[in-house]
Nucleic acid binder design. Structure first.
Lengths: 189, 189
DNA sequence: TTTTGTACCGAACAAACAGTTCTGTAACGA
DNA sequence: TCGTTACAGAACTGTTTGTTCGGTACAAAA
């Protein structure tokens, strides 16, 4: 990839991210983005078809890493090398969020958080399937499996949202405990 | 209230609702609304400051009735006059939705459903507080009370969303059963 | 270094949109 | 019947979007 392309693409992403932290997505104009990114109008439309596609590409860049990393973990419960705790993929995700690479927390805490939480949730379902459904942990219940997968994904995303609304006063371990307390009665039913 | 006012207000609401069922909120213009409602440009701005306020007013009209009706019910579990079943406010809400006054289902099933589901959830929290929190049913848990209220509200809204995505194949009674199965282990903890 | 390609800029452009202001008309309530 | 007021219609300003074009600067291959 041409170095010039990556440079302008990053400039646009950065300007867009800064604006998203300031105001609502709907009232951000392309003009503002290119002014702050210091790129020409033509250049913007050469990179992104519309503002919506810019958002989509940004989301993929943001959540791609986190979810890919979590997908690379051993399925189900596993053993941490540094200790003896039996842990879940959820704790791993929360720790990733806490590290706050690429200002993801700013976006998840902004007035645009619904956009990103929705994207987060859609990426999460696949993960939930591997964590629970594929192991048959949900089939013992009388409830439909996709209802439970949806319930667990939503609950995790809402837990993250609640954590952020509390200014992240709790540790990832505590939040994991809250979340598991709320869903474990179902998956082990 | 002047009959002319109510007439144009209803015409705008109806046109807006129809458009929301067709396309995304962001790409609906005021011009489209007033064309379909057959009202003048001036008239629209005399009634609604912006498109956002129109949406807000529509939401209040849609969910105001439903939640008010539910708020009027006896708190907690109660006895249906027509039968002997012990029931919850949730079943009542689902039955209200199924009746589909004012095309609320069309909007909740449209591509704009996030907007309405979010509004629904915010109206729901107060109801949850009355149903559970005020009776101390959540204080026995080790988890923060507002975390649980948020979790229950979110879960109910997501349950409704799932129900709609299934084209409402299940009865309100079945959905209530699903939902209670998922949250009762927590509130009775 | 020279050459070839291409990413970028700047300006200008048309079309659509938001929101306001004006005048005249028609419907309302009392 | 009479004063009030909601409405239509049109015009207007300023903004936004998305596109087009000629010229410049940078990149990678010769």
């Amino acid at each position: 990839m041409d170095r010039r392309q990556k440079k302008t693409r990053d400039a646009i992403f950065q300007a867009f991210t800064a604006l998203l932290a300031e105001k609502h997505y709907n009232q951000i104009s392309v003009q503002e983005i290119i002014d702050r990114a210091n790129v020409g109008r033509t250049t913007f439309y050469a990179h992104f078809e519309t503002k919506d596609y810019l958002l989509k590409d940004l989301c993929e860049e943001l959540f791609g890493h986190i979810v890919d990393a979590a997908m690379g973990l051993p399925h189900g419960h596993y053993h941490y090398s540094c200790g003896s705790e039996t842990d879940s993929v959820f704790l791993h995700l929360l720790r990733h969020l806490q590290k706050n690479d690429s200002n993801i927390l700013e976006l998840l805490s902004s007035q645009n958080n619904e956009i990103f939480l929705r994207y987060f949730k859609s990426n999460l379902k696949e993960l939930i399937m591997r964590q629970y459904a594929d192991k048959g942990m949900l089939s013992t219940s009388k409830l439909p499996e996709d209802y439970l997968v949806n319930h667990i994904s939503s609950s995790f995303v809402e837990t993250v949202n609640w954590w952020l609304s509390q200014k992240m006063q709790q540790t990832p371990e505590e939040i994991t405990e809250y979340f598991l307390a709320v869903i474990e009665p179902i998956v082990n039913g």
